[in-house]
Design a protein around this nucleic acid. Structure first.
Lengths: 150, 150
DNA sequence: CAATACACGATAAATCCAGTGGACATTTAC
DNA sequence: GTAAATGTCCACTGGATTTATCGTGTATTG
């Protein structure tokens, strides 16, 4: 299960992606994004900050400030966002590349049967999710207007 | 990430699977399983109970009691165990078959772009993990003796 | 310089995770 | 039949994580 926070992050990116697709895109304020995505404003604040620090969006401060996409939707990886917001996606700490941690109770990784089996499943899974981008999400709704919580 | 509890459950099933493969398999006591798998005994108690209630293993009470596999390893699904121990494996509650729950903040599932994209990823993932059984795990270690925490 | 916006840290309630403890029920060995 | 070994069940706890909210600070612009 992905967290609520991750869902909010995705909704926010969808809002920003939709905006970026317009003729004259403007930076959107937290308030505006919160309204359009149905996210608690003060919570969204923290989320957008994390996403920004990950280099996915940019912020402008002051009077006519707000947030906008920093990269093209096709370059924004969903799995990277998952790692940013929810942490490692590997099923075991000893299978995570960027957050590797030896299992406390494991004497030999090379022969661990749990690790071995989950490694295979995980690699297959990675191929699928690593290829997913914000563009895939933006396109997948195509027809209907998607406002709050849609 | 799978929970520690799930790891313990898997280790216990590996121990029971190894035992079942012997010439004269005996039921193993909680204490014995705990020792061989490196699991806290009182905690393992809860875990084995859940696994038993799921119909995967059987228990015999009394003096010479213990636990043993109820099905053949090839019939014990890892994904079912995951669902039993860790709960739903779907990325969103609205994508879980057995634990379906409408997303509070979702007005229309049919057009939800988050749901749509994760559904595709999830179905692909399910194909992989649903095919995994205890037998795959038992076979994957083949060579080395696997005792505590191996 | 004041209004508007993002930035950042503290705090808090609810839930989940990992584990422990005690009392009770069942079976077998003697 | 009784004691000992074993599984069963319920309650509880300490710590971490999740899901926020609040107050305050800082930058920008009209």
């Amino acid at each position: 299960m992905i967290t609520q926070k991750m869902k909010y992050a995705l909704k926010a990116l969808l809002v920003l992606g939709d905006e970026a697709a317009k003729d004259q895109p403007h930076p959107l304020t937290i308030e505006e994004i919160a309204k359009r995505s149905g996210t608690p404003k003060r919570f969204l604040e923290h989320i957008l900050l994390e996403v920004r620090n990950a280099g996915v969006i940019s912020s402008i401060r002051g009077r006519s400030g707000g947030y906008s996409l920093l990269k093209r939707p096709a370059e924004i990886s969903i799995s990277e966002l998952l790692r940013t917001i929810d942490g490692p996606i590997a099923p075991l700490p000893c299978l995570s590349r960027r957050a590797y941690q030896r299992c406390e109770d494991c004497s030999d990784e090379a022969t661990c049967r749990i690790r071995k089996v989950f490694a295979e499943v995980f690699w297959s899974y990675l191929v699928i999710i690593d290829s997913l981008t914000l563009e895939d999400m933006l396109r997948s709704g195509a027809v209907a207007e998607q406002v709050i919580g849609a």
